[in-house]
Design a protein around this nucleic acid. Structure first.
Length: 412
RNA sequence: GCGACUAUGGUGUAACGGUUAACACACAGGUUUGUGGUACCUGUAAUUCGGGUUCGAUUCCCGGUAGCCGCCCCA
């Protein structure tokens, strides 16, 4: 017969315990910082009606058709595996708008699906930290969001030299375009051009800009009393000197209307943005009702792993190995073995049993290699006397005592 | 969707248009059936798939697939 491949599906990852430990470390870190800043955890299904993503015009429709996993279910419903969380959040907030006390702060760590060509920092299934504040459009809220973002990195041990937060104000850029009397078409082209400004030469930028607006283009610096300048000043006052204004940050042409920002690794090896977000006027527009303002942010797990690895910020001892391995000899009955294991487990000590008939030496070796701290060899002598030998696998030192004495030793 | 590069045991590598595809690590077993991570022995296990050229292809050519990188896009 023809055997199946052990490869995972294109663009997705298997998480063996070793990788899972890394992922959990990152998710735990994300959750801790979010909750310290007052964000509440929420969740939603990966299934959404395709209409949720197509709602806003032609471009979105094309995006859904070309870059999402979309199918028709048995009830003839068109379903899309969520490519982002924001529409789901907006749906949830709009659905409970009269039950919620604004401003609300929510976070989630969803898995998202995009039908794209995999490359560094981008896969077909990935996880993303999402954090939003709804119903608060103050400058303090903007500043707090960026302080929060910076603290996510600081909490992983990153210094301000390792990452930079580039900020801009789409409202400001829009007002500049308005003062030039640009058409919507020209604005869109200019936003696209700004978005790739950092990737092309200044000459190429000038040439393309001139082609779009029919005149040379100079983007003015936001005045000192502008909201953006004040935001950056406040962040500098708060010690976040790695926040800089960058006219090229526009986040595509989407729902953002005010502050927009992206986080970048200062190491050029990771050129893709680590995350980004911005302020929107009315995310719940498509659901009707009063506008709800807010600010949101997202960052992916793939680029986060790259960042932490590049800057050597992943703890070495990230393993989920048990603390104690009980290695019974053949004369020990299953009941005796498991009863003893449970004695240790009830005190919170992670305990495994290796009752296979492989050689004792192998079992000790494997336990040590796997990072298990202690081994207890269980034979008839021990069962009869109630006194056990406990081996510390890293040092090879062996002590003996009753279960109670050994529990104390392990826990100390 | 477009382009570059790559594809040999589980992993990392080697080799050749021609006999049985080599080595290391890992894994399993043994030397040692109650004490490991050293040593020695043994074992499992590979040329991505399809087509072409050829007496003969793992090697050369074309295509698929996959990986990786870049472009597009990145909601």
């Amino acid at each position: 017969m023809e055997y199946l491949s052990t490869q995972p599906y294109k663009g997705v990852r298997d998480f063996y315990p070793k990788e899972m430990a890394v992922q959990r470390y990152i998710f735990d870190g994300w959750a801790k910082t979010a909750e310290r800043f007052g964000y509440e955890c929420f969740g939603a299904s990966i299934f959404e009606p395709s209409a949720l993503y197509k709602a806003k015009g032609q471009e979105n429709e094309e995006m859904v058709n070309e870059q999402t996993y979309t199918f028709t279910d048995r009830g003839d419903r068109e379903v899309t595996l969520r490519p982002e969380l924001t529409p789901s959040v907006a749906r949830m907030v709009a659905g409970k708008r009269h039950d919620l006390h604004f401003p609300i702060r929510w976070y989630s760590i969803p898995n998202l699906y995009r039908y794209e060509r995999p490359q560094r920092g981008r896969l077909r299934e990935f996880w993303q930290l999402n954090a939003d504040v709804f119903g608060d459009n103050t400058i303090a809220c903007d500043i707090d969001m960026l302080v929060y973002v910076a603290n996510i990195f600081k909490d992983f041990g990153a210094t301000l030299e390792t990452f930079v937060i580039r900020v801009n104000d789409r409202g400001f850029v829009n007002s500049v375009f308005d003062s030039l009397n640009l058409t919507d078409e020209q604005k869109r082209a200019m936003f696209l051009l700004l978005d790739k400004k950092n990737k092309i030469t200044a000459e190429a930028f000038d040439a393309e800009a001139a082609e779009i607006i029919g005149a040379s283009f100079i983007l003015p610096t936001p005045p000192a009393d502008s909201r953006l300048a004040q935001t950056v000043q406040a962040l500098h006052n708060l010690g976040l000197t790695n926040v800089i204004i960058d006219p090229a940050i526009v986040r595509g042409f989407n729902y953002y209307t005010g502050l927009v920002f992206e986080i970048y690794d200062t190491n050029p090896e990771n050129s893709r943005a680590l995350g980004g977000g911005g302020r929107y006027d009315n995310l719940t527009e498509m659901f009707g009702g009063e506008p709800i303002t807010g600010i949101g942010f997202g960052m992916g797990d793939v680029s986060m792993v790259n960042f932490l690895t590049t800057h050597n910020l992943l703890p070495e001892a990230l393993n989920s190995a048990a603390t104690l391995a009980i290695l019974p000899l053949q004369e020990a009955t299953a009941t005796e073995v498991i009863a003893l294991a449970n004695t240790f487990r009830t005190t919170g000590i992670t305990t495994i049993v290796d009752a296979t008939d492989r050689k004792l030496g192998k079992k000790l070796g494997n336990a040590g290699d796997d990072g298990v701290k202690f081994a207890l060899i269980l034979g008839s002598d021990e069962i009869a006397s109630g006194v056990y030998a406990l081996k510390h696998l890293a040092s090879g030192e062996q002590t003996s005592g009753t279960a109670e004495e050994l529990i104390k030793k392990i826990l100390s």
